[in-house]
Nucleic acid binder design. Structure first.
Lengths: 230, 230
DNA sequence: AGTTTAATTTGCAACTTCGTTAATTCTAAG
DNA sequence: CTTAGAATTAACGAAGTTGCAAATTAAACT
């Protein structure tokens, strides 16, 4: 009897899916998965992929390393699940902005401020994105879900810009991807480079007053580019 | 025969320090140090602090791990030397721009394009800065040299902006640090986030044509903010 | 009940990595 | 030539990793 190597290997996302749905396992299967991902976010964000320790994740969840491997299969699989999770979260939050029902200028201000704030409030997300880039996108590439997951923001932005151009307030040659990039770049830099920048230029990047001022500057920078010149 | 006047310049780490200066270093002490740092830059840039392996650095230099520890003392000391080295390099390159002798607008364009290009051509530098930030500036803080090393760029930028304001082409309330930050943010993002961004939005961030176009956009963005409104 | 199957625990085995230490070579000075 | 001290090598030990296999537990189905 060794049900050892069986590993149902819950394919990618899912529940233990035998054919009988309402079957139950001794303990808590799905709730554990969620708790593990949550803990993994903190750990990966804090130490990067290589730096993170499965034991540390286990410790944060009252489970064991073996348990996590049982659920996910490997460290990399956990990381991938984390990656998809955090991206899904930000796009989900973005979708609530309802940019299509705002005047173009308001919509842009809205998305800029939202992005700036989101990065600030979700340093974990930012750190994971950075870590993934440091890993040259090795893991991200393996996720099919990513592209479809991120399409909406660009499409929405494109519509907003088009409306702004139609009403004559935005410049003609404005590429949505480039605009999104500028917004992300300015918003992220505060967070990603806060330590070197803060140490070198003696600015506490987290200081409340400075943050508000900087957010205002970022907005102005974006509009400075987007706005149609006189 | 080898250079007698060695003066190992041991920064602070305890190298041999007899009182008799012109002593006897059989081999090449300082040259090795330089080679090691160079190799260490690649390794640290490629894998981050934790990911980097002393053995790998050793392999790149035809020496051994013990040798490196003999020269530097520890992995962290090597990393610190690397950090100071790459920062010194970029500031050195910047200083050659001679911004004080250019009209304000030209000076700004000059520094923006230089920064953008430098990051692009020195991905290693960028990756090390990012890695250090991911480590929350833990190592950087230990280096006294950093602040004085980075002061000049801000001072220079401040003078350029002041001149631009005096001649009426730049807005009144422009903070040099914030401007420097915007320039750095936009220039760095291309490099730091090229993998996630590229994978998600299907843009090859390194494509020659796109690069030139993006550099132009960055310049316009900066001027969009800096330029005095009509 | 009894069996089956999933969930969980325990323990292990292979790897990697770093820093030190002791031994060895080498150069220049005396 | 001798010798002192630097440069270099080889080997070791301690930590910390991951992933797997086997043993254990507990529920669910017949």
């Amino acid at each position: 009897m060794k049900a050892a190597g069986t590993a149902p290997l819950s394919p990618d996302a899912g529940l233990p899916r035998g054919r009988n749905a309402a079957m139950c396992k001794p303990k808590a299967p799905e709730a554990n998965r969620a708790r593990i991902i949550k803990a993994a976010i903190d750990e990966f964000a804090s130490r990067g992929f290589k730096g993170a320790s499965m034991d540390a994740i286990a410790a944060r969840t009252h489970t064991t390393r073996a348990m996590i491997n049982y659920y996910f299969g490997s460290k990399e699989k956990v990381y991938l699940a984390v990656l998809e999770h955090v991206y899904a979260e930000i796009r989900q939050a973005e979708s609530l902005l309802d940019l299509d029902h705002l005047p173009p200028v308001d919509a842009i201000r809205s998305i800029v401020e939202f992005t700036f704030n989101y990065y600030l409030d979700h340093e974990g997300f930012v750190r994971i994105v950075v870590a993934e880039n440091q890993a040259r996108g090795r893991h991200l590439r393996k996720s099919k879900a990513m592209r479809s997951l991120n399409r909406p923001i660009i499409d929405t932005l494109a519509r907003v810009i088009a409306r702004g151009q139609a009403e004559g307030s935005f410049r003609a040659n404005a590429d949505p991807v480039e605009v999104h990039m500028a917004i992300a770049a300015l918003g992220m830099f505060n967070v990603t480079n806060q330590y070197t920048f803060g140490a070198i230029f003696q600015r506490d990047m987290g200081a409340k007053g400075d943050v508000r001022r900087r957010r205002e500057i970022v907005t102005e920078v974006i509009f400075g580019y987007l706005r149609k010149m006189a």
